[in-house]
Write a protein that binds this DNA or RNA. Structure first.
Ligand SMILES: [Zn+2]
Ligand SMILES: [Zn+2]
Ligand SMILES: [Zn+2]
Ligand SMILES: [Zn+2]
Lengths: 138, 138
DNA sequence: GTGTAAATGAGAAGGATTTTCATTTATATT
DNA sequence: AATATAAATGAAAATCCTTCTCATTTACAC
């Protein structure tokens, strides 16, 4: 089924691309850095260059298959695009990432943009904190 | 008056530090990159190393004199700390930055964090769009 | 004035990502 | 199935922003 997605996006169906898709679909975590994908590939016994991982992820982003988070200070994180917008909560200790959608915030942003005379094209919202897990530890 | 702020922060009063403060206080824009500060220094005829600009801005951040924005993709931007939290709207064309405060959003973030069991420590919210100015230009 | 720790500047180093370019590969065409 | 061609790949170099190193200078307490 994935081959179709690649063809639709005007991308040739290659092993590296199929494998990157596979990793994004089957990884334990939904949010992966390029490095994470690269390491997962090597662990699967697939040879790939890190440059290719970056290239493929960027192409997938362009094709709407993947979206990219820009987390403060750190490196980019990628996730499979599921068509529904959501924002993120990040644990500053263990780097766990959780997702949320809040209609009140979404709408307030529209109002604020309108008040300032902006045509809003996008937004980026990250809530940082200490997750349930990490609160327990000490 | 600024010398006092530096001494309170445990920082020696040096010319580079005073000049960086001066630039932050008198620049046309409230939001400046390290590069912007560096160029402004050179234009003022002051010799300074870029490394010093970064160092000083980072120290000021630690001392609570300055805060740092982490804008998507780009480089860090610094602004004088005025004690009141605010978030930012960014024009994707001309890179103009505007500020806003919205209590509804602030509170919803607290609620969301609580729902997910997070102890919220911080957040980062940027609204991207096309500003009033840039909308006029075709 | 002297001493000492802190601050500076220049350049090297760093980390994440992108680019370059020679080689390989997918796919369209015989 | 063989061939042609445009796209994709890997490795290394390059890039961008930022931090670090270290020899020299400076601020400030005595
Ligand atoms: Zn955690
Ligand atoms: Zn997500
Ligand atoms: Zn604009
Ligand atoms: Zn601001």
């Amino acid at each position: 089924m994935e081959s179709q997605d690649l063809r639709k996006a005007g991308l040739k169906v290659t092993l590296p691309r199929l494998k990157v898709l596979e990793i994004l679909e089957t990884a334990d975590h939904r949010h992966l850095s390029a490095e994470d994908v690269y390491k997962a590939m090597l662990e699967m016994g697939e040879e790939i260059g890190l440059a290719t991982v970056y290239r493929v992820l960027t192409q997938f982003e362009g094709a709407g298959l993947v979206s990219r988070l820009s987390i403060e200070g750190g490196h980019a994180v990628f996730e499979l695009e599921d068509g529904s917008h959501h924002d993120h909560l990040l644990c500053v200790r263990c780097h766990r990432i959780e997702e949320f959608v809040d209609e009140v915030i979404e709408q307030r942003q529209q109002v604020i943009a309108a008040e300032k005379g902006f045509e809003m094209t996008d937004h980026s919202l990250y809530i940082y904190g200490v997750c349930k897990h990490c609160q327990k530890e000490k």
